[in-house]
Design a protein around this nucleic acid. Structure first.
Lengths: 210, 210
DNA sequence: CAGACTGGATAGTCTGACTATCCAGTAGGA
DNA sequence: TCCTACTGGATAGTCAGACTATCCAGTCTG
């Protein structure tokens, strides 16, 4: 299929598709002549993935490119590849410099993860993100209790173990695994976020008897 | 306290504070003379809230302003006020025009919420957000099952009922209720998101035996 | 009374995600 | 054959959002 058809089927304007090609989000089509290239269903699929990450997941273009580069580097094993994808999905917070409060929060996070027995890399950006969240909560006068954190951690683990990682085709082609992981993480993350707000609204209505 | 001290204590540059004042995110200080105004601890607190929503929650300035306007409009009751805050926190997706697939997804969402017995307003933006998420998942070839959705919905409700809405001081001043709600929604939402990614990484390591 | 600082106003910057225009070179029908 | 639509590639422009810089006249403060 040609670019105009790719655009028609995906609903993405041609200049935008060209932009994604330039940025390396979308692989080049197969050149059939100097001014013609052929795109296949894989391009359409990739394009839909890009739009899903951008629109629903608000993942920046640069992060999407990182994920894609990890997939296309054949040297890395599947776990590392999934890790790279995961790390790219993190919203890297600014350092929040060598504050003492921060260092303590970071230690708390490391201890919590160790206590839970989770096998998480020491450089996982989630550790920093969580530390920053804890510092922020404390500064807002609502420090999180250890019990609260455990609840959220266990909830997350239940979902990941029983409903998310099971969907991932580890035995299939490597790109399928990453694609599924990213979709699961981002889309179900969004769904969970929305459900949480809806549930809060419902509870608010119940409590206030509206 | 003067603006320079407010800046020093919060770590927010003076021009940025002025910007927030202009945008109505931060109430004006008490004028003590033509070129002098006095700021109090409430300003510092508000400033920290703004930064938390911006940096951790990625809530746009316009949405923060909406929340604040709702709080300051004394006419609205608490439930409506919390609703306004909630609606402002939603990431309003573009219409995704009158597609038939979309209409069906939207009906599914409405039916699901009704089946759950949740008291959610018919105009809650979460309904549309969820519908778009379902359409997107289907287009990506991974349609969500009804059973999956129920799991996420129940999980969200458990958290909201047992760990979130309980923190909200309904009997206190009206701004405290909204502030707590917003902090809970955004900060614990972030924490849950991070925990989910960490749990997935841990499971990936376990499954792949890394 | 001098220098620092203030509130207020205006304009400029930076990033991220596009979008528009131009171009020469085919592809495919009249 | 030739003409028109369309293509890939390159370059430059746009737009929104969140700041950031500069200027100014008017106080405080020592």
């Amino acid at each position: 299929m040609r670019i105009s058809q790719l655009s028609a089927e995906s609903g993405v304007p041609i200049p935008t598709i060209k932009y994604y090609l330039r940025e390396g989000l979308l692989p080049q089509g197969e050149q059939t002549s100097a001014t013609r290239a052929e795109y296949g269903p894989a391009h359409l699929r990739r394009l839909r993935l890009i739009r899903a990450l951008l629109e629903v997941g608000r993942v920046p273009v640069a992060a999407i490119r990182t994920v894609i580069e990890a997939v296309e580097d054949e040297r890395t094993d599947v776990h590392t590849m999934l890790g790279t994808a995961h790390y790219a999905l993190a919203s890297r917070p600014e350092p929040l410099a060598g504050d003492e409060e921060w260092a303590r929060a970071r230690e708390d996070v490391d201890r919590l993860i160790a206590d839970l027995g989770w096998g998480v890399g020491p450089l996982a950006p989630g550790r920093d993100e969580l530390a920053q969240t804890l510092v922020t909560l404390a500064r807002l006068g609502m420090p999180a209790t250890h019990a609260d954190l455990l609840v959220y951690a266990q909830t997350a683990m239940n979902l990941a173990r029983d409903h998310e990682m099971g969907k991932i085709p580890f035995d299939g082609p490597r790109d399928a695994a990453v694609e599924t992981l990213v979709i699961c993480t981002v889309m179900y993350g969004k769904a969970l976020d929305v459900f949480r707000r809806l549930a809060q609204e419902s509870e608010s209505a119940r409590i206030l008897g509206a």
